[in-house]
C-alpha cells in the first residue's frame, strides 16, 4: 500500500512537471523570440576591441542574469537518458533558454543606457543545487559585456 502511494506521488509529480514545465517552456520561448527581434539593433559581439565606427564611444559594463529551474519531468527524463548516454535534450533546451534570456536582459540593460553595441561578452554558468545536491536543481546564467554609448 505504501509503495502504491509513493508511486502515486511520483506519477503526479511527473504529470505536473510535464504539463506546467511544457507550458512554461513554450511561453518562455515565445517571449524570447519576440524580444530578440525587438533588441536586434543592439549588436553583441565577443571581440575584445571595439570596431572602428565605435572607437570614440563611451563604455560601461552591462550585465544580465537569470536563474531557471528544471521541472520534475525533465529530471526523470534526463535521469533515464543518462543510463544509455547521448544528448540530454531536456537540459539542452533549459540551458539554451537561460543563455538567451541572460543575453536579452543584458541588452535591456544596454538599451537603458542608450548603447548601440556590446563587446567582449562573456558567459558565466553556475549550478544551484536543489534538494541536498542530488541531480540538477536550477542553473544560473550571467552574461556581461561592455556597452558602447555615443558620446554627447
Amino acid at each position: 500500500m505504501e509503495s502504491l502511494i509513493q508511486l502515486g506521488i511520483f506519477v503526479t509529480l511527473m504529470v505536473l512537471g510535464f504539463i506546467f514545465g511544457r507550458r512554461a517552456e513554450s511561453k518562455h520561448y515565445k517571449s524570447i523570440i519576440s524580444r530578440e527581434d525587438r533588441y536586434r539593433h543592439i549588436l553583441i559581439t565577443n571581440e575584445k576591441l571595439p570596431a572602428p565606427e565605435f572607437i570614440s564611444h563611451d563604455s560601461g559594463m552591462v550585465t544580465g542574469n537569470v536563474v531557471i529551474s528544471v521541472d520534475y519531468f525533465k529530471v526523470v527524463a534526463a535521469g533515464l537518458k543518462s543510463l544509455v548516454g547521448g544528448r540530454l535534450t531536456a537540459y539542452e533546451s533549459l540551458l539554451d533558454r537561460a543563455r538567451r534570456e541572460a543575453l536579452l536582459r543584458m541588452q535591456e540593460n544596454a538599451e537603458e543606457l542608450g548603447a548601440l553595441a556590446i563587446i567582449n561578452t562573456k558567459f558565466e554558468t553556475s549550478r544551484i543545487s536543489g534538494n541536498a545536491g542530488k541531480g540538477l536543481g536550477s542553473v544560473e546564467v550571467l552574461a556581461y559585456g561592455t556597452a558602447l554609448t555615443p558620446r554627447c
Binding site: 509529480l13 505536473l16 512537471g17 506546467f20 514545465g21 512554461a24 517552456e25 518562455h28 550585465t63 542574469n65 537569470v66 536563474v67 531557471i68 529551474s69 528544471v70 521541472d71 520534475y72 525533465k74 529530471v75 534570456e101 544551484i128 536543489g130 534538494n131 536543481g137 536550477s138 544560473e140 550571467l142
Partner: peptide, 23 residues
Amino acid sequence: MAGLKNIFGGELQGYTELLQESR
C-alpha cells in the same frame, strides 16, 4: 518556493534577484 518550482519548472525570480544583489 524554489523547491516547488523544481517540480513545475520556470524562472526562480527570488534567486535571480538575490544573485544580482550579491553581484
